[in-house]
């Protein structure tokens, strides 16, 4: 047992490092040009958003439409900090402050709203997100209102994206594999039974919501620092829907699903740019087709793990053997 755990860890490390190195090389060789680098950043930001929303909606079972709101808090906080302090420490401080600010708002908003269920919770979180947007719109002196913040110092590069994205994925998947994570999952499974077994449903809903908001804040901060410009419009209702689409498409309750869906959609939208005028139609048709043929999402609630690969290997071997 111990040995396989160790070798699994080694395989994971090797694949992480090589992913980093290969992409870094492709950037160096300009095969991933500036345009594709923007796609790469979008994919990483969307992975962070989707995995963190999946914790709230897929694992804890709380239907939230407020992710864009948390993202905007991270974005504005980081932008304002790096505009005043355009250094690497300033950037790191900006990202972390953005995350903490989003988490705080998540905890404060979560306490009253998470009493609601299903559609009502979705509407309440949507309302919260809109309030945050309107606050940013009207705080002219600080946020420059509808015109938005320009010339935000750009610190995000592949290294930072990689660090924050893998960090998010590791922390959230570790959490889910812990007793606290199982407490969240039990609420999704059967809230009454969970309570009767000593799980405080309020506590764990707010916990999941706060952690989710924290990472959405990181995603927003990375967004601001990648694209140099933010305004309140970017963080509207449709942004929350975009994230939800990735989560549902990948599979509610599957971290690997969220990652795969974020990568696929990132690549697809990049190549659909060529058909700019019918892009949204193609995109929507694609979603409808996938949902018809695979309503549980690409991965369902399953995860890709090394054991899946070894099983796959075994079945391929046995097939070969038969031929």
């Amino acid at each position: 047992m111990k040995k396989t755990a160790k070798s699994n860890l080694a395989i994971k490390l090797v694949s992480l490092v090589s992913t980093f190195a290969i992409i870094q090389l492709l950037i160096y060789l300009d095969i991933i040009n500036d345009y594709l680098q923007a796609t790469l950043a979008t994919i990483c930001i969307n992975i962070i958003l989707a995995v963190s929303l999946n914790l709230i909606t897929g694992f804890t079972g709380q239907f939230s439409l407020g992710h864009a709101g948390f993202m905007s808090i991270g974005a504005y906080t980081c932008a304002l900090i790096t505009l005043r302090n355009p250094t690497i420490p300033g950037f790191i401080l900006g990202v972390l402050s953005g995350a903490v600010a989003a988490a705080l708002v998540g905890a404060i908003v979560g306490l009253p709203t998470l009493r609601l269920r299903g559609d009502y919770l979705a509407i309440a979180t949507l309302g919260m997100s809109e309030i945050i947007r309107i606050v940013f719109l009207n705080l002219d002196e600080i946020t420059n209102g509808a015109a938005g913040l320009q010339d935000i110092p750009q610190f995000t590069n592949w290294m930072w994206l990689f660090i924050y994205t893998t960090g998010t994925v590791l922390i959230i998947s570790n959490f889910i594999k812990s007793s606290h994570g199982r407490a969240c999952i039990s609420i999704r499974e059967d809230e009454i039974a969970a309570e009767a077994m000593g799980i405080s449903s309020t506590k764990y809903k707010v916990t999941a919501f706060t952690i989710g908001a924290f990472f959405a804040g990181i995603a927003g901060a990375l967004y601001a620092s990648t694209f140099n410009f933010i305004d309140p419009k970017i963080f509207g209702f449709s942004k929350s829907i975009d994230v939800l689409v990735i989560v549902v498409l990948g599979g509610l309750g599957s971290i690997s699903g969220s990652i795969i869906a974020a990568v696929l959609l990132g690549i697809i939208t990049t190549y659909l740019q060529a058909f700019a005028n019918i892009q949204m139609i193609l995109y929507s048709v694609l979603l409808i087709i996938i949902m018809i043929f695979r309503p549980q999402g690409l991965m369902g609630s399953k995860e890709i793990s090394l054991s899946v690969f070894s099983k796959l290997g075994d079945s391929l071997k046995s097939k070969k053997g038969r031929v």
């Binding site: 007793s179 999952i185 969970a194 077994m197 000593g198 799980i199």
Partner: peptide, 11 residues
């Protein structure tokens, strides 16, 4: 899950 209330490690 039912044992969670006695688990001692934190977040």
């Amino acid at each position: 899950i039912a044992m969670h209330q006695n688990v001692k490690y934190g977040l």
